[in-house]
């Protein structure tokens, strides 16, 4: 059997998570680079229809890996069930999106197989026969190329946005779909999850805002939030924040931008004293224009900024408020 790549896509309530297409794009690129074949797998209670959806893409085979115990999701069921499945197919490389669900079970799965995961990768390189996976380190300040030093299967998870989901190739004809039932005994699942819920009703819908002024820990103290609010007001925009600001209760939770908050794409996103951790960036990188003010010239936020100001926000913001007011009064 030739070497193969297995992409495990993610579904919830009978719908594929969109990030699944990104991972498939990554799988297709890696298959082209290595000459290995590409298979995909959907995991769930009854997921044959989703496996058919995936089979329309350029893959060799699409699996529906099923057990009644996959619903609701638990790390015990997923690790145990996928271990059986992966051992039976023996792929060289197993790819998954770096979602909250995957990061919950994949280290367990790999450990149960005596293997390792290179997690949260943003790309790959092929140098000679060697595959390297690129991941951010030190909160995005540095990047590392990481290789596998042990036997396959090699597990890799890709960060949200690392590949283009809309670039996934369609197959010439639909790939065969195979349903694989895995056996999960009575004692396997120890966690009892309850239904998912949202905390409080959101008072503001930042997704509709055209201008967002967002503050990070660089604002230093609660009372300084006022300064950012004045700028937001002058611009006619909304105030938002990074997670630590909302954790501290300086702004309400519904103003948090990022993977555990809101995802926004305003015309203008003005980041004040935000370092640009990936969990923040996923929530705002779709903004049409990003302006960042940060005193650290190497802050990762500058990598995605259109306009950058390296400096102290307390020096820059007050004159900016005045200039904006002047411009508005004059227009």
């Amino acid at each position: 059997m030739p070497d193969s790549i297995l992409v495990v896509v993610e579904q919830r309530d009978g719908k594929l998570n969109r990030v699944s297409w990104e991972t498939l794009t990554a799988g297709q690129a890696l298959a082209a680079a290595t000459g290995w074949t590409l298979d995909a797998a959907v995991v769930g209670k009854e997921v044959a229809n989703l496996a058919h959806e995936v089979a329309a893409k350029k893959v060799q085979r699409s699996y529906a890996v099923e057990s009644p115990r996959f619903e609701p999701y638990t790390p015990d069921a997923f690790a145990f069930g996928l271990k059986q499945f992966i051992e039976s197919r023996a792929p060289q490389l197993v790819l998954m999106p770096h979602t909250y669900q995957v990061r919950d079970f994949v280290p367990k799965l790999a450990t149960a197989m005596g293997r390792t995961v290179i997690s949260d990768c943003v790309g790959y390189k092929k140098e000679g026969d060697k595959l390297l996976f690129t991941r951010q380190m030190f909160q995005g300040k540095l990047a590392a190329d990481v290789s596998f030093a042990g036997p396959p299967p090699w597990f890799v998870t890709f960060q949200n946005g690392a590949f283009r989901g809309d670039k996934v190739e369609t197959g010439a004809s639909a790939a065969p779909v195979e349903t694989v039932k895995v056996e999960l005994g009575d004692g396997v699942v120890r966690e009892k999850p309850q239904a998912m819920f949202k905390e409080a009703k959101q008072a503001v819908d930042l997704t509709q805002a055209e201008i967002i002024v967002s503050v990070g820990r660089g604002i230093k103290e609660q009372k300084n939030i006022e300064l950012a609010k004045q700028l937001a007001e002058a611009l006619g925009g909304e105030i938002a924040a990074s997670r630590p600001i909302c954790d501290s209760g300086w702004l309400p939770m519904d103003r948090q931008i990022g993977s555990s908050g809101q995802t926004v794409a305003p015309k203008l996103y003005l980041a004040l004293g935000i370092s640009g951790a990936i969990q923040h960036i996923v929530g705002m990188k779709g903004s049409r224009t990003i302006i960042a003010v940060n005193k650290d010239s190497e802050a990762p936020i500058f990598e995605i900024a259109d306009y950058a100001v390296v400096g102290n926000l307390f020096d820059v913001v007050p004159p900016l408020i005045e200039e904006v007011k002047k411009a508005k009064a004059g227009s």
Partner: peptide, 27 residues
């Protein structure tokens, strides 16, 4: 089971324009 082959400063993917000058000029 895994090895860091190299560590480096990530390449910028976006054409970022850095605005310089005094605070008033930047504003």
């Amino acid at each position: 089971l895994q090895k860091i082959e190299r560590l480096y400063v990530p390449q910028k993917t976006k054409n970022t324009e850095f605005l310089e000058g005094s605070a008033a000029e930047i504003a």
